[in-house]
């Protein structure tokens, strides 16, 4: 219900892209996500690092702070506009 209230009148939402094989499990994205979209996962990648998992994609705003904080270029987010049920990618400031 809380999620519905937070997301009902939104004009845009975020989309997350994670490349787990590049991740080294530093945890910066999990720690500094302003809306706590991510959590540290239990699964290991091929190199033996724990990688982040998406807990709640609904609250992602696509601010791309995770992309800025990731030292291994493994995660980034984009902001997509919600237009009458149709999602369209928009600029999130480079």
């Amino acid at each position: 219900m809380a999620v519905e209230r937070r997301t009902s009148r939104r004009k845009s939402r975020g989309e997350l892209f994670i490349d787990c094989e590049r991740c080294k499990g530093c945890g910066f994205c999990v720690e500094f996500c302003p809306t706590q979209v991510l959590a540290m996962g239990e699964k290991l990648n091929r190199k033996g690092y724990h990688t982040p998992v998406i807990v709640d994609l609904e609250v992602c705003t696509g601010c791309d702070l995770c992309g800025l904080y990731c030292p291994d270029f493994a995660i980034h987010a984009v902001r997509v506009k919600i237009e009458a049920g149709e999602a369209k990618e928009c600029d999130n400031g480079g």
Partner: peptide, 10 residues
């Protein structure tokens, strides 16, 4: 892992 130089590149 945890190094900050990648952030500088970003």
């Amino acid at each position: 892992p945890g190094c900050g130089i990648g952030i500088v590149v970003n």
